[in-house]
Design a binder for these strands. Structure first.
Length: 551
RNA sequence: GCCCCCGUAGCUCAGGGGAUAGAGCGCUACCCUCCGGAGGUAGAAGCGCAGGUUCGAAUCCUGCCGGGGGCACCA
């Protein structure tokens, strides 16, 4: 398409700058939907509004521009028709060209859908990073599902991704945690500012089991801190693993303080003139870079403030060679974005390029239409295990990943635990299962499922619809990765592929009934089922959801 | 008070400036012996309000209304 524009410019037919890219899309409304309404023009397999955009700079009417481009496009063999409508260009694929999609998908197999848009990028993706003071709660679970899917998407786009978990095992909250454990072990009530909940008692018991004389040691609280944190960390790590999420690096905040990394980061910013003393504390001039106020890095009591760990951590990531650091945070941390970006700039980096902060809104779980409220004090925390117990890993991950993180979502546990089509993950998985099932059934009948076939026979509207949907996959993956929006993949699978597959199933029989001979369409259609299975499977894998052979 | 996110069908959510705004559930009416009928078709039903930018706005800008989150020498 862009080549056509360039050619027209070159030939002197259009006097415009050749655009960087030309958007060619599937038409928004399917052509066969119009019935009684007026303006029932068919819209083609693909459409572009490029002529409308170029009309003004070219000094011609949109229709003139469109006609110039159409004349060139009509010479392409893969297009059977090029239509100009209201300045839009509607492109109709030649039937043979469309069928080739199935061959391409089957030939590419597991790699279908990958691209190299992010090739050469070294990405550090930090997500979850829940504090080791309790079980991982539902907010963190959203990031586990979305973050892992995003990592897979970035990898599918050619990036080298390190999944990283920042483990806040330093500071006052850990002291509170340790005091809470100690209190529980000695039968005292939880401290006023401490943590409640049954897990505190369990962890305390586990510490005593591991270090029987913990209470007799010189500093029992230190024992409970060290062993309790370790214990909590293992539990979090195990439950994430059971959720299908594993990290390449579990980074301990403590190491930054012990290794002098914090001091190095501070010295570096001092040398860059970004720090100053005031009221006995050391401040970072974040307002220079758009933050609301400057931030204390070293408190007046000499203790490092929390941000000092972030400074050292960011520097450490950059020194480890990551050119893109992505951090996923919950909405309760949205106030940090400004200072993190300022920090990035203070190091001389480019905010939103070297450092990206993704903010996700909160999640509510509903049961019987009522939100499950949680209270840390009462210990009624909704955890990862609660979600998995209620709906399972696949439904849990899919439910969390199918919506934009910009939106708060309600997850109805009753809906997502249902094994019916109300449940979107079942709809998609069932389509994948059906594809596997048809292929299995064909094999049972002695029909080989081929690597190639006469795909020019695939001309039924349902076949075309499905082929067009399958052809979109690589672009969906690339877009979802680029925008850091994994939900696009889920919606695509659900609304495009699974939908089209069901319709194809309904209207296009594949296997012979009874004693019928095998139709000449059977083999091409089986190939299309293979391609469909491939896309559904590849897509579900990107979301961390299983694509079962049978359900 | 300031900052961030959201407001789309009865409900849960999609919708990167383009043509008639899409799904699922729910509702109405039909259809279906290739797989474990967890399916398909058709219909009713919607962009919070008011301006602005644009040939064109659910989408971009401003203001208001409504919901959520955040504004520490806490972590």
């Amino acid at each position: 398409m862009r080549a056509a524009v360039a050619a027209a410019v070159h030939a002197g037919e259009l006097s415009v700058a050749v655009p960087e890219s030309v958007v060619v899309e599937r038409p928004k409304a399917p052509p066969h939907k119009d019935k009684s309404k007026p303006a029932p023009q068919a819209r083609g397999d693909y459409a572009t509004s490029i002529a409308l955009r170029l009309a003004k700079p070219a000094g011609k009417s949109p229709v003139e521009v469109a006609e110039i481009l159409a004349a060139r496009l009509r010479s392409l063999p893969d297009l059977s028709e090029v239509e100009v409508a209201n300045g839009f260009l509607n492109l109709f694929l030649a039937e043979a060209a469309l069928g080739r999609v199935a061959l391409d998908v089957v030939a590419a197999g597991r790699s279908y859908g990958t691209n190299d848009a992010a090739a050469g990028q070294t990405v550090n993706l930090e997500f979850v990073s829940a504090n080791p003071t309790g079980p991982i709660h539902i907010g963190g679970v959203r990031w586990a599902a979305v973050g892992d899917a995003l990592a897979r998407l970035l990898e599918a786009s050619g990036a080298k991704v390190t999944r990283e978990y920042y483990f806040n095992d330093h500071g006052a909250q850990i002291d509170r945690f340790a005091r809470s454990l100690l209190a529980a072990a000695t039968g005292q009530p939880a401290p006023e500012d401490g943590y409640g909940g049954a897990y505190i008692g369990e962890i305390a018991q586990a510490v005593l089991a591991e270090v029987p004389d913990a209470l007799e040691q010189d500093d029992p609280q230190e024992v409970f801190r060290r062993v309790g944190v370790q214990r909590m960390f293992q539990e979090i790590r195990a439950s994430l693993h059971d959720f299908g999420v594993d990290f390449d690096v579990y980074f301990h905040e403590n190491t930054l303080h012990e290794s002098g990394a914090v001091q190095r980061a501070v010295d570096r910013l001092k040398a860059a003139g970004q720090m100053y003393d005031k009221d006995g504390a050391l401040w970072l001039r974040t307002t220079e870079f758009g933050d609301d106020k400057d931030r204390v890095v070293i408190k007046s009591d000499g203790e490092p403030a929390y941000i000092s760990g972030d400074l050292a951590y960011y520097l450490d990531k950059r020194e480890r060679g990551f050119d893109r650091c992505i951090i996923m945070l919950g909405a309760d941390h949205s106030g940090y974005v400004g200072r993190l970006m300022a920090m990035c700039a203070a190091f001389g980096d480019t905010p939103h390029v070297n450092l990206e902060v993704l903010i996700g809104q909160l999640v509510n779980l509903l049961r019987d239409g009522e939100p499950l409220r949680m209270s840390k004090r009462a210990g009624t925390v909704v955890t990862l295990e609660d979600l998995v117990d209620a709906v399972g890993v696949d439904a849990g991950r899919y439910a969390l990943v199918r919506s934009s993180t910009d939106s708060q979502i309600d997850i109805d546990l009753d809906l997502w635990s249902r094994r019916t089509s109300d449940n979107p993950v079942f709809y998609v998985q069932y389509a994948a299962t059906r594809a596997a099932s048809v292929l299995r059934h064909a094999k049972d009948l002695g029909i080989d499922v081929p690597d190639t076939a006469d795909v020019s026979l695939l001309t039924h509207p349902r076949e075309s619809e499905l082929l067009l949907a399958l052809a979109e996959f690589p672009r969906v993956v690339a877009t979802a990765a680029e925008l850091r929006e994994p939900h696009r993949v889920a919606r695509y699978l659900e609304e495009k592929v699974a939908k089209a597959a069901q319709r194809f199933w309904d209207d296009c029989h594949v296997l012979p009934k009874g004693d019928e001979p095998v139709s000449e369409l059977a083999v091409p259609r089986l190939l299309l089922w293979r391609a469909t299975r491939t896309v559904l499977e590849n897509g579900l894998v990107l979301l961390g959801v299983s694509a079962p052979e049978r359900m």
